[in-house]
Amino acid sequence: MALLKLSILLCTMLFGSSLSRAASPNNIFILAGQSNMAGRGGVENNQVRELEWDGLIPPECQSDPSILRLNPALQWEIAREPLHEGIDINKTVGIGPGMPFAHQLLTKVGPRAGTVGLVPCARGGTIIEQWIKNPSNPDATFYKNFIERIKASDKEGGVVRALFWFQGESDAAMSDTANRYKDNLKNFFTDIRNDIKPRFLPIILVKIALYDFMMKHDTHDLPAVRAAQDAVSKELPDIVTIDALKLPINVDTHEGFNQDHGHFNTTTQITLGKWLADTYLSHYGHLL
């Protein structure tokens, strides 16, 4: 028995670091934006009118050893719903598009996809100016933490393949931020790419479907933000847009939304995740 324990100890000392490296994913994807990227599928008011996730995990969102997430401590672990638990802090999180994306990618690509790494970064209710790089503002920690998570994700191997960005609903609720959205988004994407060189970073941009009526607002400037997203995708290279209005939703009847009429339900999140995978593969799948 003593000899067996000694052998286990020696193996751990000799091979422990290589085992850690082997756990790093092959293909890494960054998930960022606000609440509909973080995921609110299955999150509803309970009997005492507190938000609560129902805990229901469809097959498209189940854990799989081939799908990892970068946790808040910047370590890889097997991904489990809610994917943004501990990331979208002080929020009740549920099903998002990340796990359905990874399952669809594995289904379509097969063994060539290797292990898929998801880096959740989204924060509910945020405006673009909370995300942008601002060295003169010591409180602007979102950008610093965001870049830190991207850089930590591939330090042990693997390749960052794309950023999925779904944000702007909160900006569309305020006329001043809506009017500044184009310049802010363009600068944000440009700074990211400059700060994570030499990584090649395609961006899949989800055009917003509605404004954030759950925050204080003075306008419903959805067209301005959507137009800004279109403009940025034309002015910068390797940005592909998909339009959330083409999801199986109806803003007027609230089909595809939670009871709050602002967050996508689980079914819509699954559709979005699969669409992100199909979009990435149709444009950049040859790089895998």
Rank of each mutant, 00 (worst) to 15 (best):
N187Y: 05
I204W: 00
K186T: 11
Q167R: 07
I192L: 07
L185Y: 07
N179H: 14
R193K: 14
W165A: 01
N184A: 14
S170R: 00
D171Q: 07
A172R: 04
D171C: 06
W165E: 03
R161E: 00
F188K: 01
F200W: 08
N179I: 10
I203E: 00
R193G: 10
Y181H: 13
I192K: 03
L163H: 02
A162F: 03
P202W: 00
I203G: 01
S175A: 14
A178Q: 07
N187T: 11
I203L: 09
A172Q: 07
D195N: 09
L205A: 00
A173G: 15
F200R: 13
N184W: 10
I196V: 14
N184R: 12
S175T: 14
R161A: 00
N179K: 15
A172N: 07
K182H: 15
Y181A: 07
P202Q: 00
P202S: 02
I196L: 09
F164K: 01
N179P: 08
F166T: 06
T190M: 08
N187P: 02
A178T: 10
R199F: 09
D171Y: 05
F188Q: 02
K186L: 11
A162Y: 01
R199I: 15
F189V: 10
N194Q: 14
D195M: 05
R193V: 11
R180M: 11
A172K: 05
R199V: 15
Q167I: 08
D171E: 12
P198I: 03
F166W: 13
P198E: 08
P198W: 07
L205V: 01
I203M: 03
D195G: 06
N194K: 13
M174C: 14
S175M: 13
D176N: 13
S175Y: 09
Q167Y: 05
D191M: 10
Q167S: 11
T190I: 10
E169W: 04
D195K: 03
R193F: 11
T177C: 07
P198D: 13
N179V: 10
G168T: 09
S170N: 04
I192M: 08
D183A: 15
K182C: 11
R180I: 02
P198T: 06
R193D: 12
P198A: 09
S175F: 06
F166P: 04
F164I: 05
F164G: 01
N194I: 13
F164L: 10
N194D: 13
A178K: 09
F164M: 08
A178S: 15
L201S: 01
F188L: 12
Y181R: 04
G168F: 06
K197T: 13
N184Y: 12
G168W: 03
A178L: 11
N179G: 15
I196G: 04
Y181G: 06
P202L: 00
